[in-house]
Design a protein around this nucleic acid. Structure first.
Lengths: 212, 212
DNA sequence: GCTCAAATATGAGCGCAGTCGGTTTTCCAG
DNA sequence: CTGGAAAACCGACTGCGCTCATATTTGAGC
């Protein structure tokens, strides 16, 4: 049962998030001062740093929360189609979000490589959730006969994320990333990964089977 | 013919490099102030920023130069053995260097994702040089019959770097990276990549051929 | 050797992120 | 309702990265 204290904190958290997103969008990450964020959120500077250990961590948590929401929402509405299409449906959510704020996204991604302690743990949890959900899709695909029964869903999840990460990185670092282009280059790579786990029909290799 | 002006600049560059490495090693990147670097290099703070656009760029250029040297030196002494061993000989140079300063290396790697302008160009040049040298090794391996004649050496170079990057990243982000562990996990991945380009002997697949 | 413009060097100063000792708000036991 | 402890908040302050107006050094032309 949340008391006044917890409600106030929740409200401040919301105001900080809104203030930070709007200012980062208006002026960019570097040109936005922590004072300006505090002012728009109607709190003192000192208070801001009670809610985020530093400015980088603030940006990181903004994106991490949204990516978490995207995972939840997209997996809840996964289309009843082939595994590849299901994966692309989820991943499209990431691409669309990044494309909304490409400059901020470019600032966000390198932060992942510098995570430590709690922030690392929270990101790892997000990743683990993603793996598990991909694993569930893979299991369902097995019952449909799209994937060999002996494939480990969790391992496949890791591979999917690795390939996604590699492509989204190249896409983000390039000039003016467009969702369409990003998905177009990712799709064949994922398709090739999934080809490797398709059940092999007698006398026909997985790759040839797909071409039919 | 270098005049006094050029000699002075070269000397300052050297002093800055030495001062920065020693201080970064002693106190870490964040705890080292630009004032301290300038003082140990016996120059003014303002002068330091004539030689590096900012503190991050300074760390970046230190590592980039050393990695460039490693590429040159290691490729000059590549052993006359199988392609995989040659690649691992070169890459071991990177692992050993990173292992010397793991904390600084962790700070360095994310900087690569934020490169722009001249710094990006200089890093791209380093990469291109690496690809070309790997390409030369691949060509030599072709004449020895280790690699199929139709394989594009440059493309293989890109793949080698991609796999290396993936593994070195995971290794660096883990606790207390040891050279032995890093190479042990990288080796099978590279071996698998090279298996894919081995000449196929009649009636024996590349992978089975390797197992003999 | 002297002159002077261009190149190079300098450190006081500025704006920022982040801290910390003091203040206010919240909660609950009595 | 009240006392007081704990939690939350605050903004003046600190120390840092980086700038820029000024000073110094260099070397070509004479």
């Amino acid at each position: 049962m949340p008391g006044r204290r917890e409600l106030n904190k929740e409200d401040k958290r919301r105001r900080i998030r809104d203030a930070a997103w709007s200012l980062f969008r208006e002026h960019g990450f570097d040109a936005t001062t922590t004072r300006a964020i505090a002012e728009r959120a109607e709190i003192g500077v000192g208070t801001l740093f009670l809610y985020a250990p530093d400015k980088d961590a603030l940006l990181f948590s903004l994106f991490r929360d949204e990516l978490g929401d995207i995972v939840t929402k997209r997996f809840a509405r996964v289309p009843e189609r082939a595994l590849l299409d299901q994966l692309l449906y989820v991943i499209r959510g990431f691409y669309e979000r990044y494309a909304e704020d490409p400059a901020l996204a470019r600032r966000f991604v390198p932060l992942i490589l510098r995570l430590e302690g709690d922030a690392l743990a929270s990101y790892a949890a997000l990743n683990a959730d993603f793996f598990a959900r991909v694993g569930a899709l893979v299991e369902a695909a097995k019952t449909r006969g799209e994937v060999r029964a002996d494939v480990d869903g969790a391992v496949l999840g890791v591979n999917v994320l690795a390939i996604y990460a590699y492509f989204v990185l190249g896409w983000l670092l390039g000039p003016a990333p467009r969702v369409k282009d990003g998905l177009a280059s990712l799709k064949p790579a994922l398709a090739s990964l999934l080809d490797g786990v398709r059940p092999v029909k007698a006398g026909v290799s997985a790759r040839e089977g797909r071409r039919k």
